[in-house]
Amino acid sequence: MATETTASTASACVGPNGSAIGMPQLCGDWVWNQVFWLVLALVAIYFVLTRVALPRIAAILAERQGTITSDLAKAEELKAQAEEAEKAYEKALADARVEAGKIAEQTRAEIRAQVDEAQAKADADIAAKTAESEKQIQEIRASALANVEAVAKDTAEALVAALGVSADKVTVDAAVDKRIEGQR
């Protein structure tokens, strides 16, 4: 490394051919030069570090820590919100289910009421019609019986007259009545 140095190097520690005499570390001629430049270098590094580098790195680290903390807090908050939303959804679902059940029940009751009413009306109609029909049947039967009696009396009178027996109408009628009475 030092081989290119010329022989004129003015130091007691370097030989005429440029190689070191003894230990270069112990050469007194160079000490103050090294001390001077070392102190300069250390002061330079110290000022660069304290003025610029260290505050900046500390700020970066603090900012990162802050970001991480706030991100965690935000995530926590979002999680809480999500849980809340889920709870609300569940509640809404349950409410809707209850409501739906209620509505269905109500509708069913309404329909049943309508059906009952309609049935009652129909029953009443049918009963009324039945009663009327029975009355008519009764009437018809009564009138039919009356006709039967009249026809029987007329027939009996005609028979009696045909047989040549004169019998008065009253007797014949009584006899017919008696027979009919007996028939019944």
């Binding site: 190097t9 370097v14 070191a20 570390q25 050469c27 103050w32």
Partner: peptide
């Protein structure tokens, strides 16, 4: 010379090494 690498020498020209 293994110790030659530790020699202090002026960057510009040859002369004595002052402070």
């Amino acid at each position: 010379h293994p110790m030659d690498q530790f020699i202090v020498k002026p960057l510009f020209g040859d002369g004595a090494v002052h402070m």
